[in-house]
């Protein structure tokens, strides 16, 4: 931990200091409210009736219409369970692939000396720049021609090559992986794969958890690729379903729409809070390492 607890200098504790403190907290609380307010509105509106929402769209008082909204919502051709399970399969699959193989790739760069190491790292930095949309048309035509459309598999495997995760892991590893331990393991006769899996991986846990959150979230929220690769309704992921939530524009049940939005968010909240201690603790990256 870089943060060391110094005693606050006495000279700073004048009125100016308290003014600064008050400003700081007011500002932080303002940001917190700004970040939370839309969710609050969403959750509260999920309990209100259509006419209540129409006359006053913002309210902090929950309504009593949750049961009715639930009825309307389940009557729609919107299957939360399917969407959730599909999204879960894709996101966890992609997260595991991306975090495990990125760590492996980063390990190859940090722990071994090989001829094209520098060039390879430069290549990864360059690959970072290729936007996914550039490849999307080719990707679509390619997937279509090998019959990989409508396979969740097709959304998971590409995650093995995640340049930004490799970059992040490499930064962390170059600061936090002691080579001596690897060497002594080698002397004990451990194979390189065992060294990676049983020694290096556990040491990378904080960084892997942080990257897991990012990878999971970005995969869970990905709309572009699923939108063009999935056409079978049973394979739809959550974002596709949400984007079609206004499924029947001729009938507007706002309460039910808000309820649907809330349901798409709740599972993610749970996973997020499970892993949030890594957000709080923070992960130290080797910022100045060459």
């Amino acid at each position: 931990m870089a943060k060391t607890n110094y005693d606050e200098p006495k000279s700073a504790k004048g009125p100016l200091f308290y003014g600064y403190k008050v400003f700081q907290y007011v500002f932080l609380i303002f940001l917190a409210v700004m970040s939370l307010l839309p969710f609050v509105i969403m959750i509260i509106n999920a309990t209100r009736s259509r006419s209540q929402i129409e006359s006053h769209a913002i309210s902090l008082i929950p309504g009593t219409n949750l049961a009715t909204n639930w009825k309307v919502f389940t009557g729609k051709s919107f299957n939360v369970t399917t969407g959730f399970i599909n999204s879960f399969i894709v996101s966890t699959g992609a997260t595991i692939c991306s975090v495990y193989f990125s760590t492996m790739t980063a390990f190859a760069i940090v722990a071994y000396d090989w001829k094209f190491k520098k060039a390879f790292f430069a290549f990864i930095m360059a690959v970072l720049m290729i936007p996914p949309q550039v490849t999307s048309i080719g990707m679509y035509q390619f997937m279509y021609s090998i019959g990989m459309t409508n396979k969740l598999f097709a959304l998971i495997v590409p995650a093995v090559a995640a340049p930004s995760t490799v970059f992040f892991m490499r930064q962390y590893m170059s600061g936090a992986l002691p080579m001596e331990i690897l060497q002594s393991a080698r002397i004990d006769g451990a194979g390189e794969f065992r060294i990676f899996n049983q020694i290096a991986l556990p040491m990378m846990k904080p960084a892997m958890a942080t990257q897991a959150i990012f990878a999971f979230v970005s995969s869970w929220n990905n709309l572009f690729l699923p939108l063009i690769l999935l056409t079978d309704k049973k394979k739809f992921t959550m974002p596709i379903m949400v984007s079609q939530l206004n499924g029947d524009i001729y009938k507007t049940e706002y309460g039910a729409v808000y309820l649907g939005l809330t349901l798409t968010v709740l599972p993610l909240f749970v996973i997020y809070f499970l892993l949030s201690k890594y957000i709080i603790a923070g992960v130290a990256l080797g910022g100045v390492k060459e």
Binding site: Y112, I130, T135, P158
Partner: peptide
């Protein structure tokens, strides 16, 4: 050194098939 190459194989393979090839195709 050979492990360096070995460990980047998954990345390189997937990259070539799912990212590089579509880019060329595009």
């Amino acid at each position: 050194a050979k492990y360096g190459y070995l460990f980047i194989i998954p990345f390189v393979l997937v990259y070539l098939i799912f990212h590089f090839y579509p880019t060329i195709y595009t």
